[in-house]
Nucleic acid binder design. Structure first.
Length: 260
DNA sequence: ACGTGCTCCTGTGTGC
DNA sequence: TGCACACAGGAGCACG
């Protein structure tokens, strides 16, 4: 699930549940999710410390330590967090466990495509990993520059983390649906007015999705997102179609979204 | 710089 | 029912 809205929901979840408690134990249950750190080093860097705040950039989450630096999380395609107090089983597919005294925080990944590691600073992490500006923070003129400079399909541009961080397959579709733009439109074919519209819809879709806890069942009827399947209908009543863009299945409404 | 196709994983749905 | 295969809200890689 994890695009920007999902990760923001996890960030708030962790913020609400897991801060300012001593990390009494760390277990790594799938070593392959570790990035740039051994299990031994991760454990020794975290044990006895506390998480004091949680940030996000794009699809990455950063839990700040009271010592210094951050633990970073990437949720892959299936990741989420689960916190509980007292006894209780960790969920299936828990790949890392943080013991917080009598409480627990599990990093759960069905597919082991997520990442967990350490970084000194978010800025350094962003630049080392070539991430573009966060989609919720970017201003309109920087956004315009990105679309104007790109020769790719607009959907690919929106999903390219080097250009813009946070948007994936699902939300790029929703943004383009709300902007009434066909996913295979070239970014460079969008005029100023269209780019404005994509920008505004990007912001409103992401904000709405966060308010709705990134849960499709809670989203407005005007959203296409809950109808991402064969045979489903657009809010306009038309048939939803799909097409591959950058190897990903894109859902769109041919009646609402015409090629530029 | 772009698209395509493959890879990493695991689970579910589909068609024969 | 069994089995093979496609596909899934991500991303890095090689190749053309």
């Amino acid at each position: 699930m994890p695009e920007l809205p999902d990760v923001e929901v996890y960030r708030r979840y962790m913020d609400k549940t897991s801060l300012n408690q001593k990390i009494t134990g760390v277990k790594v249950l799938a070593e392959r999710i570790l990035q740039g750190v051994s299990e031994k080093d991760l454990v020794s860097r975290l044990e006895g410390k506390q998480f004091v705040s949680v940030d996000r950039h794009g699809k990455y989450m950063f839990a700040k330590l009271d010592s210094d630096g951050y633990a970073f999380f990437h949720f892959g395609m299936t990741g989420y967090l689960k916190y509980w107090r007292g006894q209780g089983q960790s969920p299936d597919h828990s790949r890392a466990l943080f013991e917080l005294g009598n409480s627990h925080l599990a990093f759960v990944l069905q597919r082991k495509l997520g990442k967990l590691g350490l970084t000194e600073s978010i800025d350094k992490f962003v630049s080392d990993n070539d991430l573009g500006p966060d989609a919720l923070s970017i201003d309109k003129s920087s956004f315009k520059n990105i679309l104007n400079r790109s020769n790719a399909y607009v959907k690919s541009t929106l999903m390219n983390q080097k250009h813009l961080a946070g948007i994936g397959n699902i939300y790029s579709d929703e943004i383009l649906f709300q902007a009434r733009i066909h996913p295979k439109t070239k970014s460079s074919d969008l005029d100023d007015g269209k780019i404005d519209k994509v920008f505004d819809k990007m912001k409103s879709v992401l904000k709405t999705a966060i308010e709705d806890k990134a849960n499709p069942d809670e989203m407005p009827d005007s959203f296409l997102l809950p109808n991402r399947k064969k045979g489903a209908h657009c809010p306009c009543g038309g048939d939803v179609k799909s097409v591959k863009v950058s190897g990903r299945t894109s859902y769109f409404c041919p009646k609402c979204q015409k090629p530029a």
